[in-house]
Design a protein around this nucleic acid. Structure first.
Lengths: 258, 258
DNA sequence: CGTAATCTTGACCAACGTCAATGTTCGTGG
DNA sequence: CCACGAACATTGACGTTGGTCAAGATTACG
């Protein structure tokens, strides 16, 4: 059977399997992500010395903080160490579209650093600690270290796949499928970096946030949620998401396991 | 009614231009893009010798040809030299979402080459000539040439920006805005590479294709189109798109002209 | 205990999809 | 040149999905 979701496990040798393993930028961060360090993949043949010069700063911010704002020039590159964040766009009308949710190990701001002013803003969804890298220096590292550059490119391409799937979701799926889809994707991402167990995961998004991810109104998200709950496919309890049967939910969202 | 049919398969109109300046992969293609050669921008300090080894093949295909199919492994990297193509996904239901339209100078298949089997398919929209590069060799070039790698990464990030905007379109815009948005974006891209003049550009998409880009039904696209036409914002004649006042249309669509 | 934020629901309305019929364009063979 | 059929464009009628408004319930927190 065919599937239209990205194949997150596409590294059959395992070398792409851990999400953290494919983010060489997160690997630069010395202080954050102890869980990730346990996995201990040096990833890019970077020794302490070569990355020692990269200026980095860490900051802890409360939920709701804007980490970057649209239009900032030559900004830094941000990696989420702990907590959640999201990248979003605001329309003239005031409407908001959440482009991507960032979980620990995810990086944002590359576009701003390499291309000039970024179009999207990043906001902390929970209280979070963020590792900031100097954009100019990171560019230098990419220029001087081909294998690092390749790693960054791979990460970016992986990202693109997820976004492609998101386009399909927004363009061609109904409300219930969208919500189910986002939940499967999120659970899967978290599970891959050890932040979720089989049947549940943290889920700090409010209904309004969820609505702005899946392109629906808050009220209609409620309807979809009620329906999914009544079929015992998902259950949100406070800020935790329960998925009794991930396979069944995945199927409901159009995702079929290989 | 008389229609002016642009020549897709040959002539000045269909060739690469400065747009390839930001696409280092297109710059590798020796045979296509005479316009770019005229400008003589070496882009990545690549001399003939270093790229001489890259195996490349050119092919001309009629409209409707599938250039790559979902799931292909270790595929090549494809650059559109002349004509149009599009990247798309098909759902179990049979529905199709067009992820991106490829105009001369655009590249697809990087994900497949660097990450393994690609999820999206590519199909020729018009008769087209495609330049195919060997994925493995291209990976080698990226590894060995940091500045080339940086260029590819930059291109990819540029791409991501466009896709982000597409997410906003699908998630938060109404039918009329979506159609208007896509038209402004397309015209803008074409204008940037000299393939459009101020008030018109080629537009080979059928109504059904347009619908699958903007995530609407064919019939509803018609309604949006009728409304836009009645406001004298756009006019489609055969396979050419007329935009009397691009600024007004951009404003209508919330598109930021650079 | 009180206030604000969030959740949840029903009632109603607008936007969008589906079906089906008709017109139009275009290529092909006579 | 014309006849014909296939693919595409266009439109109306009608059903469904999703948005908006508003109200009450629940939770978080000082």
């Amino acid at each position: 059977m065919e599937t239209f979701l990205p194949d997150w496990s596409s590294g059959e040798n395992g070398h792409l399997s851990m999400r953290s393993g494919i983010n060489p930028i997160a690997a630069l961060c010395r202080n954050c992500s102890p869980a990730r360090k346990r996995q201990g993949r040096p990833a890019n043949g970077l020794d302490r010395q070569s990355i020692g010069d990269i200026k980095q700063r860490q900051m802890s911010v409360p939920a709701g903080t804007d980490i970057t704002t649209e239009g900032e020039r030559g900004g830094g590159v941000y990696t989420v160490c702990e907590g959640w964040a999201f990248r979003y766009w605001r329309l003239r009308s005031g409407a908001r579209q959440i482009l991507d949710v960032l979980v620990p190990g995810d990086t944002a701001g590359l576009g701003g650093a390499l291309l000039g002013a970024s179009r999207s803003s990043v906001q902390a969804l929970t209280s979070a600690t963020i590792c900031m890298l100097n954009g100019r220096q990171l560019t230098g590292l990419i220029k001087s270290n081909p294998s690092f550059a390749l790693g960054v490119l791979r990460m970016q391409l992986q990202e693109e796949r997820r976004i492609d799937a998101r386009l399909v979701m927004l363009g061609r799926m109904g409300a219930e499928e969208r919500v189910a889809y986002f939940m499967v994707e999120t659970h899967d991402r978290l599970r891959r970096c050890g932040l979720a167990n089989t049947t549940s995961c943290p889920f700090p998004l409010r209904r309004a946030d969820l609505a702005d991810v899946v392109g629906l109104s808050k009220v209609h998200v409620m309807r979809a949620l009620r329906e999914l709950r009544s079929q015992e496919l998902v259950e949100i309890n406070g800020r935790e998401l329960f998925i009794p049967d991930i396979v069944r939910l995945a199927d409901h969202a159009g995702y079929l396991l290989a």
